[in-house]
């Protein structure tokens, strides 16, 4: 078992939560979403995002509107739907539970590392 794979799996797991979270702040263009995700080191290339957005849109969690752009063809701007907001809240609840679980099960390790410092 490789550490890179384990880390990649963890990141994949939270990707949808993060995308919904970013879009819930307001209308977003894919390249803006990418910028936030890149800063968080969640994804590196833009191509990863398009299939995810399409899937979330087809599931009714996101929707988009076409907006004219100054430099070229109209762009798709994504926004979250009420269903998506509900979904995001559920994910967040579970996420908080997970954070708690991780803290509980690794508390002794975190204490030792801070003791060593």
């Amino acid at each position: 078992m490789k550490i890179e794979n384990a880390i990649a799996q963890m990141r994949k797991g939270v990707l949808e939560l993060c995308i919904l979270g970013i879009i819930s702040k307001g209308e977003a263009y894919p390249s803006d979403i990418i910028r936030s995700l890149k800063e968080a080191k969640l994804i590196v290339v833009e191509g990863t995002l398009y299939p995810l957005l399409t899937r979330l849109k087809n599931a009714g969690l996101l929707d988009y509107t076409w907006r004219e752009s100054t430099s070229g063809p109209p762009r798709k701007y994504y926004h979250i739907t009420p269903k998506g907001r509900e979904f995001l809240n559920q994910l967040l609840l579970n996420w908080n539970g997970l954070v708690h679980a991780v803290e509980e099960s690794t508390r002794h390790l975190q204490q030792t590392t801070s003791d060593n410092e």
Binding site: E46, G47, T48, L52, R55
Partner: peptide, 19 residues
């Protein structure tokens, strides 16, 4: 480079279950 190749998509985005 910005868009990435399918190999990279697979590594970082799509879960194994779909697509």
């Amino acid at each position: 480079r910005i868009m990435g190749t399918p190999e990279v998509f697979e590594a970082e985005g799509e879960s194994a279950a779909e697509g």
